[in-house]
């Protein structure tokens, strides 16, 4: 399976590349919009939302990513790449983000930072994603149980009832750990650094 992986020159894409190749994805790391050539786009992200959005706009990826999704292409966002899918982020004094998903990103209230692992269970019988995902049929299992690694200070608050949002944990239940909206999946955690659970996640969605 071919995958285009967006590299904006912020943070690194090495871990995500390693992770995708574990399930034999043919990963094309791209830093120009004209190199988008796959039906599945992966947008990882670390850093600060302001600089990340600046880079997206400067390179033209902001419109290209929106157009890719509008045309039915799949998009997987990870961590900051997930947060910028929403409409607005409080980070860096307030930043307008892509608006692909309804909702906003705010500083984690109370805890300030969230570094660690959360045990998570997804029942894909309750959330049917087969119209857009699970095309490669890498697993017959319908339930994903595992632990996933989080490292963030800002988090997303879902603002659209048509989007399926799964909370980070019981103690952070107001914040989205995963959001699914048709051909778009976003995860706050780092599946590429979630050991075997990260691999299982890929097998369930690809």
């Amino acid at each position: 399976m071919k995958v285009d992986l967006i590299d904006l020159g912020i943070g690194n894409t090495r871990s995500v590349t390693n992770w995708l190749t574990k399930v034999n994805c043919d990963v094309n790391v791209i830093n120009r919009v004209e190199d988008i050539n796959s039906e599945l786009l992966v947008m990882p992200g670390v850093g600060a939302a302001g600089k990340f959005m600046h880079k997206l706009r400067k390179t033209g990826f902001d419109n290209s990513v929106r157009n890719h999704v509008s045309a039915g292409g799949r998009l997987l966002g990870i961590c900051l790449g997930f947060q910028v899918m929403f409409e607005y982020s409080e980070e860096d004094g307030g930043v307008q983000t892509l608006g692909i998903l309804g909702g906003k990103v705010e500083r984690l209230r109370g805890v300030g930072t969230h570094n660690g692992w959360e045990q998570t269970s997804f029942d894909f019988r309750q959330v049917d994603i087969s119209e857009h995902w699970r095309k490669a049929k890498l697993t017959r299992a319908k339930v994903l149980c595992g632990r996933f690694f989080y490292n963030h200070e800002y988090a997303a608050v879902n603002g659209d009832r048509d989007q399926r949002s799964f909370p980070i944990s019981n103690s952070l239940k107001n914040y989205s750990g995963v959001v699914i909206s048709r051909n778009v999946i976003g995860v706050q955690y780092h599946p590429e650094k979630s050991q075997q659970s990260g691999i299982e996640f890929l097998r369930h969605i690809l």
Binding site: G47, A48, E153
Partner: peptide, 9 residues
């Protein structure tokens, strides 16, 4: 480094 990798890093 915080700008490039995020303050959480």
């Amino acid at each position: 480094a915080a700008t490039l990798f995020g303050h959480q890093a």
